[in-house]
């Protein structure tokens, strides 16, 4: 079949190094992946096309790029199902510096991975043989361990788009992999770092990383589990954790969200500068009759009792990381 690849080209050495799309028409087999198409272009049409790839079997993580606007492994994406009117658009990953054409600089990615100290930190005397972990304890870590460091999640992270200080989905999933490891005993330090600016609370839960991850790591779900672990560890509250708590309290109490109280409690009741700063918004909303009745004026929804019952149930539901909370006591048994 005849297909068109719209490839975003960028050559830093060109007289005019502005990135722009170039159209390549090739004859593709029905089994072709997007990567097969790009390799065909490189081999038969334009040898200057820069593509990074190695295994062609979605395990090396080299060929992550944006296909039709979303990050994917080019070798795991079928060309035939990616076509719109016979064409597919291929761009380099986002949030990272483009080196040339579809090749991006991985230093931002690795910097963030390094920042979470991605290695086992056990305490106490070294065992004579290896550190033992039970199968059950490791089952929970299979998903984050499936990460192949392709950078797809980092590419499409909407928080990184606006704040490069965010650790990002891949590094946070990696952090979870060690927080959840029964042999690792650096949890207190790890969680307290993750509780800071740029850590687990900065995710906006947009789900993009879960959608684009080619290995089912579901980084955002791991970030949510880290938040749980942070709260269970009793670390100082943050805007993020207060938001979660206030949200849950409000729904449990009244069956729906008290938005006014949510804002106040998230900033912190005594955070005068922040409250002052958001006062004009509140006043404008009040004048236009759009300020939800908060605090004592927030009324209970009919059926709030049922919601409360759900919350009581959940309090006793087992948590994935529940084992972690007690691991320091059981690791050496």
């Amino acid at each position: 079949m005849q297909v068109t690849l719209n490839v975003k080209r960028y050559d830093p050495e060109a007289a005019d190094p502005t990135a722009c799309f170039e159209e390549f028409r090739i004859e593709a087999e029905s089994h072709f992946t997007v990567l097969d198409g790009l390799i065909k272009v490189r081999e038969e049409v334009d040898p200057s096309l820069a593509v990074r790839c190695s295994c062609r079997a979605s395990i090396c993580g080299s060929c992550a790029m944006r296909v039709n606007g979303h990050a994917a492994l080019a070798c795991k994406t079928k060309l035939s199902t990616s076509l719109h009117d016979g064409a597919v658009s291929v761009e380099p990953m986002g949030n990272q510096r483009v080196v040339k054409d579809l090749v991006t600089d991985a230093s931002l990615f690795w910097g963030k991975i390094r920042a979470v100290e991605p290695f086992l930190q056990p305490k106490g005397p070294e065992p004579e043989e290896e550190y033992i972990a039970s199968n059950d304890a490791m089952l929970n870590l299979i998903t984050p361990m499936g990460c192949i460091m392709c950078g797809a999640c980092v590419s499409d992270c909407t928080v990184l788009e606006v704040d490069k200080n965010f650790l990002g989905p891949a590094a946070l999933a990696k952090a979870y992999r060690f927080v959840g490891d029964p042999r690792d005993e650096a949890d207190a330090d790890r969680l307290s770092t993750l509780n800071e600016y740029g850590g687990a609370w900065d995710c906006t839960r947009c789900y993009e990383c879960v959608q684009v991850c080619p290995k089912g790591v579901a980084p955002m779900d791991r970030i949510m589990e880290l938040r749980e672990a942070i709260q269970r560890a009793g670390l100082p509250s943050t805007i993020g954790s207060r938001h979660v708590d206030s949200f849950a309290r409000s729904v449990a109490r009244s069956g729906w969200l008290d938005e006014t109280l949510l804002a106040v409690e998230s900033w912190g009741k005594f955070n005068v500068p922040k409250l002052m700063a958001s006062a004009p918004v509140g006043i404008r909303a009040l004048v236009r009759g759009k300020l939800p009745k908060g605090g004592p004026l927030h009324h209970k929804r009919p059926g709030a009792k049922n919601v409360e019952r759900i919350f009581r149930r959940l309090e006793h539901a087992p948590s994935t990381l529940a084992a972690v909370a007690s691991k320091s006591g059981s690791a050496h048994d």
């Binding site: 050559d11 050495e13 490189r42 040898p47």
Partner: peptide, 11 residues
């Protein structure tokens, strides 16, 4: 060598 570039020249 067809392509003479100095950056990421896979050719």
């Amino acid at each position: 060598v067809a392509h003479k570039g100095a950056v990421y020249n896979t050719d």
